[in-house]
Amino acid sequence: MKIAVIGGTGLIGSQVVKNLNAAGHQAVPHSQSTGVDIISGEGLEAAVAGVDVVVNLTNSPTFDDASLGFFQASMDNLVAASEKGGVGHFVILSIVGVDQVPGLDYYRAKVLQEDILKAGSVPYSIVRATQFMEFMDATLAMTTDGDTVRLPRTPVQPIAAAEVAAVVAEVAVGSPLNGVLNIAGPDVYPLDELGRLTLTAKGGTATVVTDDTAGMFAAVPGDVLIPQAGDGACVTATHYTDWLA
């Protein structure tokens, strides 16, 4: 298959390209560095012309309300170019429980991205992943003040980026789901506990204080960020403690 991976030079995209090419497909990474601008539309039609599948792994540069404009413009351009180019399958990466967190601008923006894809004429697949293990340091940094880290007890089920990339690549070469696949790591942790585990493993000296009002995850109700029983989620193999080690 010929596959255009938009955002194909990032954390997930670069691994998706590698996996697809190793499996014998022709996957081409596209980004601003290769002359493709998803906001202005420059280079998009050429990037998706004649391809079987488009995988969009681009992300908003901010997590505030500006992310809504980013996903609106980028998806409008990508869907239009894909329809014009006769693309047979369009894949995006989203977040488990994203439609259950209206209090976060970024999550509302990701729902908008999903809705624009669903409204188009190109058959599609949406892969929703839980929080990446690789982002735990950034999560800690967001609520660190001196030697104190404040984190809520929000349940999370972290997944390794390499396993996200593997599933995205597998979905890309399969039949369109015209729906959602949830994927998650094997273990559920309260976020505050995960913070303590991370700091201990890395020799950190900061103290994690449980604070259900701290950081962006404070806006998350209940356990919506983890797959729910009966939703057919794909659970991957890598445990967070093994990943840390």
Rank of each mutant, 00 (worst) to 15 (best):
E42M: 10
A166W: 00
R150C: 01
P102Y: 12
V111M: 05
G50M: 12
I12E: 05
N56P: 03
V173D: 04
A229D: 15
T238M: 11
G97A: 10
G86W: 01
I92S: 02
E134N: 12
V28E: 07
I226G: 07
E114H: 09
A166C: 00
I38D: 05
P123N: 11
P29Y: 02
Q32Y: 12
V208A: 06
S125R: 07
G215V: 02
A165M: 00
V111I: 09
A162L: 02
I95A: 13
G146H: 05
R108S: 14
M136S: 01
T198P: 03
L140Y: 05
R196I: 06
A218E: 07
I95G: 12
F90N: 01
F63K: 07
S121P: 01
Q32G: 14
E42N: 10
H30F: 15
V53K: 05
G35L: 02
A129Q: 11
N56V: 05
Q26R: 06
E83V: 09
T144L: 08
S74G: 14
G13S: 06
I3N: 09
Q157L: 10
V28N: 01
V171R: 06
V111K: 05
F71Q: 05
T213Q: 14
V209L: 12
N21F: 07
I38P: 09
T210M: 13
P155I: 11
Q113P: 03
H89Y: 02
A160S: 11
T58M: 11
G86M: 07
V48S: 05
G203R: 00
D137A: 15
G41H: 08
V16F: 12
T139R: 04
T236A: 04
S121N: 14
Y107P: 03
D105F: 10
D105E: 15
W243F: 11
V101P: 01
T236K: 09
Y189I: 03
L104F: 14
E114N: 04
T205S: 14
T58N: 12
Y106C: 00
V224N: 00
E45H: 13
E163K: 03
L177I: 12
D147V: 02
Q131N: 13
G120F: 00
D99Y: 02
A229L: 13
S125Q: 07
P158A: 09
F70P: 08
L104E: 06
Q100L: 14
A201D: 10
D145M: 07
I116D: 07
G195T: 08
T238G: 01
Q113K: 13
V54C: 01
V127E: 12
D211I: 08
G222C: 07
L225A: 00
K118R: 15
N59P: 10
D65T: 11
T148L: 11
N21D: 11
V55R: 07
F132C: 01
N56G: 07
T207A: 13
P186G: 03
L177R: 10
A245L: 13
V96G: 01
R128T: 06
A162F: 08
A237L: 13
P155T: 04
L112H: 09
Q72R: 15
V167N: 09
V127P: 02
G7M: 08
I116H: 11
G13E: 06
G195K: 03
G8I: 08
N19W: 04
V48E: 06
G69R: 12
S121C: 02
Y189C: 02
V5N: 04
